[in-house]
């Protein structure tokens, strides 16, 4: 299967969801999304980091510096309570949208 472009606006949702498993660094997030979606969802690194910054600005995640497996200084992103709330909202919004799209697809 060839990698699919992400639906616009879903990257935040996917990152937040990923972080519910625990703190992860940027590379870890990209790797996880890639594996879990069975290589379908290819996250462009170019858009990943701006998105991570955006989530921090909004207070949905916080960054903590730690050591990577290779000994480099690396930032681990952690979900905040506000982030969990946001995730719930985004999930519901996404469900609604998907349902709506399916209704339209079936109707025609």
């Amino acid at each position: 299967m060839t990698p699919t472009e992400l639906l616009p606006g879903t990257l935040d949702l996917l990152i937040l969801k990923t972080l519910t498993r625990g703190p992860l660094h940027g590379y870890g997030i990209a790797l996880y999304l890639n594996q879990v979606s069975e290589q379908v969802l290819q996250v462009g690194e170019g858009s990943l980091y701006p998105a991570l910054q955006r989530l921090m600005v909004n207070g949905w995640t916080v960054g903590e510096w730690g050591q990577s497996e290779t000994g480099r200084r690396v930032r681990f992103y952690k979900l905040t309570p506000a982030g969990r709330k946001r995730l719930k909202e985004e999930e519901q919004g996404f469900d609604r949208m998907v349902n709506a799209i399916q209704v339209v697809l079936r109707a025609v």
């Binding site: 590379y27 480099r72 200084r73």
Partner: peptide, 9 residues
């Protein structure tokens, strides 16, 4: 730092 780490990985 982050980007360099990412590239390395």
């Amino acid at each position: 730092d982050e980007l360099a780490f990412h590239a390395e990985m």
